[in-house]
């Protein structure tokens, strides 16, 4: 991978974590763990992969992203603001009445959000619909789907997996944020996921298993997926829930947490130090 691009993406990922932690600091609580674990992948997509136009968020020819784990909205919001879809000061409004930034993604509220999500599993089918719609209408673009690992408990995920596999939807690139934890505890204890990649492979998907907190690995996996025609793609992201913020990583239960000023300030100090080094 080009070292310059690698550095650019990683620097952006840190900036995304900074803005995301600021959102949580203002509100004092949120779905912090899963927002941070997926930050690198979202940073790769918006910094180096997807085509989009912040001034025309509904441009038909754009690549689409469905964040089916809708509770990772705050990470996406920080990216969309940084990319100019809406003013940065919207990030101070997370979850307050009248906000454009609700806890879970809402396409009718937020410029740049391509699909409303939050009821887990539903983004799988809607992303398939978006992807199929682009194919039918002859558009040359990709649909990116992000599911959580706990989300794989939902039957709808597998309904969609069958359809996408059967129809060889190779312009659908999905990621599973395998951070090993869901709301009530470890996924292995609640409903053991076993081999996620093997399950999707059995449905006819092309699969990869990578370190999902390594931006280089994520970027390269996307390039590899695009070069593999004839199948939809599942990139299993081995991640750490809370990745990039030590105090959150170390919490046993970090799905939805109270974010104290102390925790946020320490996290921001660490992240800003890292960001300064990366910008170097």
């Amino acid at each position: 991978m080009d070292p310059k691009l690698s550095k650019q993406i990683k620097t952006f990922a840190t900036q995304v974590r900074i803005e995301t932690m600021k959102e949580f600091k203002v509100r004092g609580f949120g779905h912090v763990g899963g927002a941070l674990s997926i930050a690198d992948t979202l940073a790769v997509l918006y910094e180096a992969v997807m085509k989009y136009d912040p001034k025309n968020p509904n441009w038909e020819g754009r690549d689409k992203l469905v964040c089916s784990k809708g509770h990772a909205g705050p990470t996406l919001y920080s990216i969309l603001a940084l990319k100019g879809f809406f003013p940065m000061d919207w990030l101070n409004t997370l979850n307050i009445p009248g906000t454009h930034l609700p806890s879970h993604c809402d396409k009718n509220q937020t410029p740049g959000i391509d699909m409303t999500t939050g009821s887990l599993g539903q983004g799988v089918s809607t992303s398939i619909g978006l992807c199929l719609g682009d194919t039918i209408q002859g558009r040359d673009c990709y649909t990116y789907l992000i599911v959580g690992d706990g989300e794989l408990n939902e039957g709808q995920v597998w309904e969609g997996a069958q359809f996408a596999g059967h129809h060889k939807m190779d312009h659908l690139i999905a990621f599973c944020d395998y951070n090993k934890k869901q709301l009530d505890g470890y996924t292995a204890d609640i409903l053991d996921q076993r081999d996620i990649g093997a399950k999707f492979a059995a449905f006819g998907w092309d699969t990869q298993d990578i370190n999902g907190n390594d931006a280089d690995a994520v970027y390269e996996a996307i390039i590899k997926a695009k070069a593999t025609p004839g199948k939809p793609h599942m990139i299993v992201l081995n991640t750490i829930k809370g990745a990039g913020v030590k105090a959150v990583e170390e919490m046993s239960a970090n799905h939805h947490i109270v974010v104290s000023a102390e925790l946020a300030d320490q996290a921001l100090a660490d992240l800003e130090k890292l960001w300064a080094e990366q910008k170097g």
Binding site: T126, G133, Q137
Partner: peptide
Amino acid sequence: AYNVGVSEANLAGMAAGLASSGL
């Protein structure tokens, strides 16, 4: 025309996605 098989949740969700794509 697409037969989604016996999967109604996917049926409804796909219809939603297709509508969002302009169909």
